[in-house]
Design a protein around this nucleic acid. Structure first.
Lengths: 363, 363
DNA sequence: CTGAAAGCGCTTACAG
DNA sequence: CTGAAAGCGCTTACAG
């Protein structure tokens, strides 16, 4: 390592001053930016003429336009959209509230929303609720205060009456992944019930009867629906579910690991596990790898590299990007005024078999 | 499946009308929202008094405050931050331009930026450049027009002179992951050169001499730096690198797969591969799994489940969240006026050995 | 083709 | 403790 470069001992960072000096920057005040008035003065025209040029409106002589453009360039003018927004009403921006952008499920969803927004000339403001209802509300209302045109919400809470005045005032709103609580609103969901039921039925079809279920906290809609799917599949097969086969709670390894280990021990352990979301699946895979017997696994949500593990991980995949795209399209249709009554749209899931779900019961 | 529910044949979606009707929503015009003026009229006070109550400023009698609060509640008033922003100057929002939010590298980075922004009371607007310099510029300037207080940029292009007027006008700017082009600005990078050199040296230490390098397009700074690290390690070991061992280009499987296969075939194939980013690594893992001989692998960037593959994947990990956090903190220090000259901050990488990088050469 | 006046919904700087 | 006036930087609705 080049020891001439100073290194911060605590963080290990190397700190190098850039050779060039920062451009002689004035105090960061907005007053320092030129306005249309400044451009008008310099070009010797009226304010409205500058506005016409900046917005590409017709009715300006080529010569006048040239003078205005010259002034814009010389002054480094850039239209202040804050002012424009105030006058025009629409902000051409929408908000997306999700749980955590660092979760691989939400990245593609957010990107899909962004693409639809972009196609409609709108920017996207992202906010992470961290699964905290209060933070969700705080974020949603802050976005409304910024006068976003619409809101796509992956709810953390289960009561959204706080949004009623906003919706009445014209803020388009679509809920995704989980339904809204106590208000009528558009909702876009995956078929959590059907997907889980199919996944569990798949394990049953491969000879399993003692099947464990590990899921998220029961107050979360998707977790409850997936549990319902599990119960339905078991009931369809005439299997009486034992309480010790089901475990719902936080999705962190500290909770999931002992839960999985408990089901896999004792006199009559489960021979298969249905893990009800991506984070649970990752931990369950780790636990199963340590087991002496082969235990079958089907997970809800696809995970990267699932096909390269041995065995490959069979999953019930949902299409995160399609959820985002569908919700955003619906949002802009609300803004167009095309829509009337709120709807609940359910997207299908897909069972992808890769090996872990096709293992027969051990013994 | 419940066949009473209508299903869209093309998409497989189920469409269910929500039972409750959408609240009798007026046309989505902002004029319909109550303003401070309306609140003042209803409460029988002046505009400024409403402003005081809304902003929690002192100097209002409890009785007056009560009347104002009542009017706010009855009218469903919410302060219009667009107007506030126009008057105050700062928007309390920052922009983040990255390549693609759907890439697992950027999710944690974005989340880290968001957390710092939140701590400073600011919202975050995300934009994906899709690795297109024009789109990066378009996004950056759109954000400046919205008067974001600052910009965190993971650049797609290599010329950022277009930002000079904005920076001069007071828009705080920090570049991350790749340096700025042709302007002096704060930059936060990983130690791409050192990390790659260490990773390749690790392979050499395990007996390899014929080592392949597969990376991103050479115009991308990180790709060039990592290649430089590869060359340095090889040179340090006195190994003459053959052209056929190096392959730079797009990171999609369609390009990476044949590149990897080419190095692994012929009379003198490589015995180890250094894959220079997460997406390349994923494809290389797939190719190596199909090889008759064991080929060693070290990848730049960590990937989820890398420890569960057989063998586990040895990687040079960078800390995406730390990159984002460091950049955002730097941004707010610029806004505080604490900073003077632009700096280049380099974060260390970390070699994580899991098996694939410790395989000896085959034969 | 061009521009002066009013106004979007707030905050600022004052005055009472 | 309270409020009227001016202004942030644009667009709208007019008039010339």
């Amino acid at each position: 390592m080049d020891r001439r470069i100073p290194v911060d001992d605590r963080t290990g960072r190397r700190i190098v001053p850039e050779t060039a000096r920062r451009a002689d920057r004035p105090a960061p005040r907005y007053g320092t930016r030129p306005t249309m008035k400044d451009v008008a003065a310099r070009a010797g025209v009226g304010l409205k003429t500058v506005s016409r040029v900046v917005n590409g409106e017709p009715g300006v002589t080529p010569d006048t336009e040239r003078r205005v453009q010259e002034a814009i360039g010389a002054l480094g003018f850039r239209r202040n959209d804050s002012a424009r927004v105030l006058r025009k009403g629409r902000t051409a921006s929408i908000g997306l509230i999700l749980e955590d952008l660092a979760d691989p499920f939400y990245g593609p969803l957010s990107r899909a929303v962004e693409e639809v927004a972009r196609a409609h000339g709108a920017l996207l403001i992202n906010g992470s609720s961290a699964e905290d209802p209060e933070r969700e509300q705080e974020l949603a209302l802050a976005l409304c205060a910024r006068r976003v045109d619409g809101l796509v919400v992956i709810p953390a809470g289960d009561d959204h009456r706080y949004l009623e005045p906003e919706i009445k005032a014209g803020v388009a709103t679509v809920f995704v992944d989980r339904p809204a609580g106590h208000i009528a609103a558009d909702v876009v969901l995956s078929d959590n019930f059907g997907g889980a039921r199919d996944g569990v039925a798949h394990l049953i079809a491969h000879g399993h009867r003692r099947i464990g279920f590990i899921g998220d906290m029961p107050r979360i809609h998707t977790a409850a629906e997936r549990l319902r799917g599990y119960r339905a599949a078991m009931e369809d097969a005439g299997i009486a579910v034992e309480d010790s086969w089901m475990s719902l709670g936080a999705t962190d390894p500290g909770r999931v690991r002992p839960a999985a280990e408990a089901m896999l021990s004792g006199p009559a352990p489960v021979t298969a596990v249905f893990s009800a979301n991506n984070r649970v699946t990752v931990t369950v895979i780790r636990v199963l790898a340590e087991q002496p017997r082969r235990v079958a696994l089907v997970g809800f949500d696809d995970i990267e590299l699932a096909d390269l593990l041995q065995p490959g991980v069979t999953v019930v995949a949902q299409d995160a990007a399609a959820l985002g795209r569908t919700a955003a399209e619906r949002l802009f249709r609300q803004l167009d005024g095309t829509l009337v009554a709120p709807e609940r749209i359910e997207l299908p899931t897909r069972l992808i078999t890769r090996g872990s779900g096709e293992l027969p019961p051990a013994e």
